[in-house]
């Protein structure tokens, strides 16, 4: 059935996942967290929404919709947009939800759903924590040399990761997904004009091909690359700039960089335009 879901039905799933998860992130962004000592009971995300949709409908549309929704509703609307860094979140969320949707074979099997919902959070959190630790390492000059800092970063990040896997994973993914999916199954599909998914409709027995896993890993690497694009650049220019004694020469190089960026963008656009003319 997944195969025969039409493009417009996929778009429906995308729109649905985007609006619902977007709205949810708008709230979770605003609900303050509760800390008891170092254990943080924060509502990280209502990831059960897109996971449920991914299980019931087309996993990829649900995953992309959720990631898009998060960026638009909680980042752009609330002015929290973090630029390229958001790419990491986008990719990890997409991968986690997509995998969850692919792994569930029978939307009626509650145990299976619960395990996979927890797994999805674990995957997402581990990927996120890895990126976060690397990020702080880059942002702080002489990271290793600062007393207490490396340990505390590893500790806080590692702890936050485990904390989230168990707290968010159980309360905001495992339980609600297992509650929602059976209740939505057979009820939400007719509203979209789709035939409910069942055991037979899953893609011919192939659970996870190496190709799918390969693509996920590639995507994650691209995500990290996006995150560090700027910061790897830092190291290089930092090094290059060390010959420059005055701030002015740094400024000049900055300005030059700006001009080059602008020029590149314009040139790129021109070429694109030319190509388009050719295609026309």
């Amino acid at each position: 059935m997944n195969k025969s879901m039409t493009q417009s039905q996929k778009l429906m799933v995308f729109v649905l996942s985007m609006s619902l998860y977007g709205l949810a992130t708008l709230f979770t962004e605003l609900i303050p967290s509760l800390q008891v000592g170092i254990v943080e009971f924060s509502i990280e995300y209502f990831i059960f929404i897109p996971i449920a949709l991914a299980i019931l409908f087309d996993p990829l549309s649900a995953a992309l919709g959720a990631a898009t929704g998060e960026i638009i509703f909680s980042e752009i609307m609330l002015g929290q947009f973090g630029g390229l860094g958001e790419l990491e979140k986008f990719v990890t969320i997409t991968i986690a939800i997509y995998l969850a949707g692919r792994l569930v074979r029978d939307p009626k099997n509650v145990k299976n759903i619960a395990c996979i919902a927890l797994l999805a959070v674990a995957i997402q959190q581990l990927m996120g924590a890895t990126v976060d630790i690397l990020k702080v390492q880059f942002a702080i000059e002489g990271f290793e040399a600062v007393p207490g800092l490396p340990e505390s970063v590893f500790f806080t990040e590692g702890f936050a990761c485990l904390n989230d896997i168990f707290f968010s994973g159980i309360f905001f993914s495992m339980i609600p997904t297992a509650y929602l999916v059976p209740r939505l199954h057979g009820k939400i599909e007719p509203l979209l004009g789709v035939k409910p998914r069942d055991r037979e409709t899953q893609l011919s027995g192939v659970k996870l091909s190496p190709k799918v896993i390969g693509i996920c890993i590639m995507a994650f690497i691209v995500g990290i690359a996006g995150e560090f694009l700027s910061e790897v650049g830092i190291a290089i220019i930092d090094w290059e700039a060390s010959w420059a004694e005055s701030g002015i020469s740094i400024f000049m190089s900055m300005l030059l960089a700006g001009v080059i960026i602008t020029a590149l963008v314009i040139k790129f656009k021109r070429r694109q335009a030319n190509l388009e003319v050719m295609y026309d």
Binding site: V15, L16, A24, A52, L53, L184, I188, L191
Partner: peptide, 12 residues
């Protein structure tokens, strides 16, 4: 979110 998902599904 359960009823919301159903209502928004109808709209989308």
């Amino acid at each position: 979110f359960l009823p919301l998902m159903l209502n928004i599904a109808k709209r989308s």
